[in-house]
Design a protein around this nucleic acid. Structure first.
Lengths: 212, 212
DNA sequence: TAGATTGTTAATCGATTAACAATC
DNA sequence: TAGATTGTTAATCGATTAACAATC
């Protein structure tokens, strides 16, 4: 319905980087930036930056550039950082615990309100003041607490069954750390973190470099 | 020098997914697959798959398709999974510990042989049988043990100084988990894992979805 | 041989870059 | 006003898809 939905994924994936540098600039007290200066910071071309931003409206001013505070705020809105969501983490292995301790998640307006595990030894424990609950009460908890995001840090094999349960309980988005492609109905967002693919890419380039 | 280096990064980033599905097929004992079947699995078009693979040579056979074992092995070689590298993890926070415990890293032929931290309370501890050493002896250790990969899991501010030290000590590749863009000399590979950007993207699509 | 499926060229599509008029 | 820099159109570049001859 809105023009946001037509903006290509390649553009969207550049937005967090813009936002990150604007956060830095804001901290430094810089209140004005040109596309050329942003280009020097981000490595994207000035032309591309202007094109990207203009997908969402004219945030700049001719002869001046962009106001850092305004642009930062607008990008934040576009990224939905002003919205608040409850999340749960499924799987309390090392990765699940890392995510529970990861502060960056709050910058996206997301609050982890419970962890879940099937291991009775974990149930009842607290990680950064967040309680670990039995995976049996997952659906019940999600519905009761208006949880909209499920974070999957269980092993590969368990990921799809958990995703199915999350979806059935009404979750809207999944942050998936399991190295598998989840099948979810249309309308449910899945964002994958592919550690395995990332390390393979590093290996590829090391290998390619050595061949030269 | 070799044709690999001309292959575009968009193609390279699809290779791990091919490899992953071929690993699955191999486990299932399936020994033949067509580009069309691979398409159904991966979601890439059959045409794209044939194009991608032909960047590295003709692995298929007309009228037959691809031999799963052969293709799996060839992709493994292309990704350098047959090579072995020593790695160290800098930073023993939750993320560093997760990575130390992450088994997927071994699939890339990478062995974490030490962790480093500046916190004296951590030094001397073991994580999954890997010793935590004082960050002061980082360079010495790298040179002595032929370490080629540095994994950065320290906070944002510490990332660049650590990267500089890693590079000076002769490291060839960096797996960077800090939310910052590292400056390294040409020839040093940096592969970033951007948890902050990933969660922002999830937020974006949740927000976009709700607007519809 | 007939059928199937690759390898590869050509066509299309989309993303990036260049250029410049609009305008602050 | 003159200078600077955006917003936006046009040109270029690269990636994806379609098509089909080659060939197993």
């Amino acid at each position: 319905m809105n023009k946001d939905s037509q903006v290509s994924i390649t553009v969207i994936r550049r937005l967090p980087k813009y936002h990150r540098y604007l956060t830095d600039l804001l901290k430094k007290g810089i209140n004005r930036i040109s596309s050329q200066e942003l280009s020097a910071l981000t490595g994207f071309t000035a032309s591309q930056i202007r094109q990207d931003l203009n997908n969402f409206g004219g945030f700049g001013q001719q002869g001046y550039g962009y106001n850092v505070e305004d642009l930062h705020r607008e990008l934040g809105k576009i990224l939905g950082l002003d919205k608040h969501y409850n999340a749960v983490i499924c799987g309390t292995g090392n990765l699940g615990q890392s995510i529970a301790n990861y502060k960056g998640i709050e910058d996206a307006g997301i609050k982890v309100i419970s962890l879940f595990d099937r291991n009775p030894k974990m149930v009842g424990m607290k990680i950064r003041d967040i309680e670990v609950r039995d995976i049996d009460i997952l659906e019940e908890f999600i519905i009761k607490n208006k949880v909209e995001i499920g974070i999957i840090t269980v092993p590969k094999e368990g990921a799809q069954p958990i995703a199915d349960r999350l979806v059935k309980a009404g979750i809207k988005g999944i942050w998936n750390f399991a190295p598998t492609d989840l099948n979810v109905p249309e309308g449910v967002i899945v964002e994958n973190v592919r550690l395995n693919e990332s390390i393979f890419i590093l290996s590829y380039f090391l290998n390619a470099m050595n061949k030269k």
